[in-house]
Computed example of a mutant assay.
Amino acid sequence: MGLSFSFVVLLVLGTYMIASRATSGGSTGDVQLAEGTVPAAYAPLVQKHGNRCPAINPALLAAQLYQESGWNPKAVSPANARGLAQFIPGTWAAYGVDGDGDGDRDIWDPADAIPSAAAYDCALAKYVKDVPGDLTANMLASYNAGSYAVVRYRGVPPYNETQNYVRRITTLAKSFAAPKQPVAASRQAAAAIYFAQR
């Protein structure tokens, strides 16, 4: 999926500011979203649920959701994956959560889809925790190709689609993360523009 012009503008503008939102729980609580890189309605959910387990962080979860749907909560893929996190209905039945506590698990509702994506990521990470290699890469590969493929190949499987999926998300995550220390705005903006052009 290509980057839209509006996203690039938000990404470049967001690189000039450091997020001030507090994190909640999790061992990766030091990662903050860069201001303006996630739609305002979703940013608190991504920040909160992106700290669910050590394999993910808010920037990585944001990159994954962007890659999956481009922030479109009504997206449907040719494989019948649905919503913001692009769950197949069978996977949703097993891993979907009632994130907003309204009594239902709605695949189309970002308040359910975002925490469900984080919960599913963490479940996959737990399943492949003993597989050699980087835990986050193996988790992302599991989301794309299935954990059985990651276990079988003892790491990211040799599928071009899966390897590109892992590479895109881990690279894009850097653009969603606020810097831990001040970075020259022109340098960070240049990096965001470079990524967008690629």
Rank of each mutant, 00 (worst) to 15 (best):
E161P: 06
T162H: 07
P89M: 08
Y143T: 08
P58H: 08
N57V: 04
A85Y: 03
D102R: 02
A79G: 09
A111H: 14
D102E: 11
K126A: 15
E161T: 11
C53G: 07
P115R: 14
N160H: 13
P115D: 10
K126W: 12
V76P: 11
A118T: 10
Y66R: 14
P132F: 04
A118S: 13
S142P: 11
A55R: 10
W108E: 04
W108A: 14
S147M: 03
P132A: 05
Y165C: 01
Y127L: 13
M139N: 08
A123I: 11
A177K: 15
A93I: 06
T171W: 08
A93L: 11
Q64S: 13
D100F: 03
T91R: 04
A79C: 07
G70M: 05
A113H: 04
P110T: 02
P158C: 02
A137N: 06
P54W: 01
K129I: 03
A59T: 03
H49R: 06
D100W: 08
A59L: 06
V166Y: 00
A123H: 13
A137S: 14
P78E: 08
R168T: 12
I88V: 13
Y153C: 04
L140D: 08
Y120D: 07
P157S: 10
Y148P: 03
G50E: 05
V128Y: 02
D130Y: 12
A111T: 15
W108P: 10
W92P: 00
G146M: 02
A149H: 01
D112W: 11
A177D: 08
